[in-house]
Write a protein that binds this DNA or RNA. Structure first.
Lengths: 375, 375
DNA sequence: AACCGCTTTGAAAAGGTTTTCAGGTGTGCT
DNA sequence: AGCACACCTGAAAACCTTTTCAAAGCGGTT
């Protein structure tokens, strides 16, 4: 019992397969032939009847939860296999209160980031025997509806990535009985474990890189106002400039979003003026790609006239022209860490130790979109 | 009852909210204040006790399933709200055999396509009151494990996108008791509804476009052997060439994958030879981006020396240099259609009418990566 | 006054599993 | 022979809901 609780896994992954059935057509090159599955939805009662034992005995054999005589054990296993029995998850959940699924709440953000994170979460979850129940959404209200639904006994825990979540909204999640882990989302003063990547440090390092190249006229397309990651990146930029003794020009701090379109649209007016920055930090890689396009159209060559940096380090940035200098977020680490923290909390039974704050470092990838300023 | 079955929705989305509680702090600009939720996990029994009625009555009021006297109805609603009662989904599932979730099996493909499809599926599912239980995976074996788990009473239906699924593997899914919809996956002779996009037609149209520009030396980076979409696209290419009286050169038909890296790696040797094609169809947009890079490095200019086309029509292709000519797959339509077909099947109770085969047309987006051949 | 039919209500069963509790068998000891 | 004990096993309770069935109350009719 204790072992089960600690492992955080559903107690059994038993599933009967049919041996020696007439349908079993396994051949050497057909690894699935023997796993053809029956769907008459046999219940534990059917198995018990067929094996000539009580349902308790069946349960004990299948879950390996108590000693059963050798002969009965064998009969039970045979009956279960013959019937293709698989325990009913709803019945199990009803009793054990474990759903063996994790909820995931994601904003619908930039394509690659989203898919990589989800894949990472899914891999980690499956390794631990959990399913992922997901909800993507733009609007906060939806997120709340989904969170509420999920937390109503549908998941054992929740992973939330919602950088724009406001504190008092986050606060409301605190009354949930299931543990919650935040990714890149502000949980100041709240009891949630968090996994953040180092937005501040990454932005600071990118800015420092530009300064080291000799740039002094550095602009930034910052992310949405109120989004935690955007604010932190802005702060990294400001700090690096301040330490270099440079006062940022307010008209070179413009607000954008995490999309190609936004980067393009917001960058255009920047290059239309007489004076423009010689280097530009962008909200993320997609935004940077948009800005690069705007620069080209304005007759600026990257990097000789303008240096551009992104954020996230998506695989595709290596294939941009020129390859983009950016801060790589190790998305797989972020996902695995989040799942791991969540499973720990679930296993602990929601113990009240202090919330864990993980910060995943980011690497600056120096590529060809940055160079010394012109002249 | 009939209405419920037909709608395909869980019968009730009731959820009590706490009115007039001390915690209720709603203010005009705080739309969530009144939705603070309690998690003492009140059961229907608690509600009945507090309201001084039987649990049957509570159930009737909350599901609006029979007439209840006005006074008792009011008492029940008050009690439910005060306790923050929400029905236990597992108990409901156990009885109704409806999980109100849909399974989604996706290969972990190219970033943007994946995320857009998932978002589309999720939006459609949520609109109908369903959750999405997802599984991403590379390996077929995993897909099967996940499918099996999901179908064991964990989902009401399954959406599978697995272009590389082999027929006999697909065959095995046919014994499942829950309906299944295939996206872009071969279901020849199988009872699954399918949503395919017009791989053949798109590829044919792209090739025709290149022919019309005057190209005769057209190569292709095809997708994985055995993948349905790749085979169909190859066929479109071959047919268009054949109709133009051109015999394809076998050394200009190379096998790649749906990634930047593959496009880059496979295209390089193509450009290293003395003779190379003047136009290149690519497995998808990512692959095309890789090929463009390889072309640049080989000293070829796109489109003046080499025309390149992709497939999928991802948003980011508009921001490539040059913007990529490609066939746009309306991913949101694909996703919505798949969910809609699946929900229909679920509502029908798995009726045995002939499988529906939907083919979603694709648009050719003519952009700047294609031009007449040199000379 | 007896009876009928209608509305409202509660008791109870069912759904499939896990787990507790008690009973039964057999062994080893005095 | 009698007793303690370990070991297996089955009956039954519990999880929470929905739904069926029957009872009760009540107004109206013959």
């Amino acid at each position: 019992m204790l072992r089960q609780i600690c492992s955080g896994k559903p107690r059994s992954t038993f599933r009967a397969v049919q041996h020696g059935s007439s349908r079993a057509t396994a051949t050497p090159d057909d690894p699935y032939g023997h796993e053809c599955w029956d769907d008459m939805s046999a219940t534990i009662r059917d198995v018990a009847h067929r094996a000539g034992v009580s349902i308790s005995t069946v349960s004990r054999v299948l879950n390996d939860t108590a000693r059963v005589s050798h002969t009965k054990r064998k009969r039970v296993l045979e009956a279960a296999a013959a019937l293709g029995y698989a325990p009913n998850p709803a019945a199990r959940t009803l009793l054990s209160k474990q759903t063996s699924s994790l909820g995931v709440l994601l904003p619908f953000v930039s394509g690659e980031f989203f898919s990589e994170l989800l894949h990472s979460l899914d891999t980690a979850a499956q390794d631990a025997g959990y399913f992922l129940l997901i909800s993507t959404s733009h609007r906060l209200h939806n997120e709340f509806r989904a969170a509420r639904m999920m937390l109503e006994k549908r998941v054992d825990g929740l992973i939330v990535m919602a950088p724009e979540l406001r504190p008092r909204e986050a606060q409301m999640l605190a009354s949930a009985s299931e543990p919650i882990v935040f990714i890149n989302t502000d949980a100041e003063g709240l009891p949630f474990d968090t996994v953040n990547f180092d937005n501040y440090g990454g932005s600071y390092a990118l800015t420092s890189h530009l300064l080291a190249l000799g740039h002094r006229d550095i602009g930034i397309i910052r992310g949405p106002v109120g989004a935690r990651d955007a604010e932190q990146r802005l702060k990294g930029y400001r700090t690096a400039l301040a330490e270099a003794g440079i006062a940022p020009r307010s008209d070179w701090i413009v607000t954008g979003e995490y999309t190609l379109e936004a980067g393009y649209a917001v960058a255009q007016p920047l290059f239309a003026k007489d004076e423009h920055p010689t280097a530009l930090l962008c909200a993320n890689d997609y935004c940077a790609a948009g800005a690069v396009r705007a620069a080209h159209e304005a007759g600026l060559s990257v990097p000789s006239d303008l240096s551009v940096v992104g954020f996230d380090g998506l695989p595709s940035t290596l294939y941009m022209q020129p390859p983009l200098t950016t801060a790589r977020v190790p998305i797989d680490v972020v996902g695995r860490t989040a799942v791991s923290l969540l499973l720990d909390r679930i296993a602990e039974g929601h113990a009240d130790h202090d919330p864990v704050r993980r910060v995943v470092p980011v690497d600056v990838l120096m590529r060809a979109s940055t160079a010394p300023p012109p002249r």
